[in-house]
């Protein structure tokens, strides 16, 4: 119950942070960090895959309601929620723990950053691709995704550093 509450607050907090503050950064006209995806990255391995999918879907949908881009965030976030358990297996600790909460400590700094980078880039590429909805601007989409991912990963790195307890 305690955990549910914690993740619930995190969900709402990240959606509000994204919608009200981060979406207004618009550095150089188009670069925004899409930090809210951090919620999916942090879900513990004990959460089953269907629930992860559902949470991803709801997370994207809440963002879409704020952004007016109905469907775009939802599509990208659901995809990340689907891929997340696979990448968690690849980059996560090899030993059989009961529950793994992805973090610098449990994964190791390098592994966690690799895990985050891949998922963040997939998320942002798919988001911009679906938003443009055409193959014609593929280079532009790639550039946007690349720039935004760098910012997002930077924020995730800072957030991890702040919560990293030795």
């Amino acid at each position: 119950m305690n955990n549910t509450l914690k993740y619930g607050i995190m969900f709402i907090g990240l959606v509000l942070l994204q919608a009200l503050i981060l979406n207004n950064i618009q550095f150089l006209g188009f670069i925004n960090p899409y930090f809210y995806i951090y919620f999916i990255l942090l879900l513990p391995s004990s959460v089953n895959r269907d629930l992860t999918l559902l949470l991803g879907f709801l997370l994207g949908l809440s963002l879409d309601v704020f952004c007016g881009s109905l469907g775009c965030h939802t599509f990208a976030t659901t995809l990340v929620a689907y891929l997340k358990p696979y990448f968690q297996k690849v980059f996560g600790p090899r030993e059989d723990y009961d529950v793994v909460i992805p973090s610098f400590r449990s994964f190791g700094v390098k592994e966690f950053l690799q895990y985050a980078t891949i998922l963040v880039f997939v998320h942002q590429f798919v988001y911009f691709f679906v938003e443009a909805f055409t193959f014609a601007d593929i280079l532009q989409v790639l550039m946007k995704a690349f720039c935004c991912s760098i910012f997002t990963i930077l924020l995730i790195y800072i957030a991890e550093k702040l919560t990293y307890k030795r």
């Binding site: 269907d50 469907g71 775009c72 939802t74």
Partner: peptide
């Protein structure tokens, strides 16, 4: 299947 249903749902919203 759940994944596909959710993705189709969001595509429907987009289109």
């Amino acid at each position: 299947f759940f994944f596909i249903i959710l993705e189709v749902l969001s595509l429907v919203m987009i289109v």
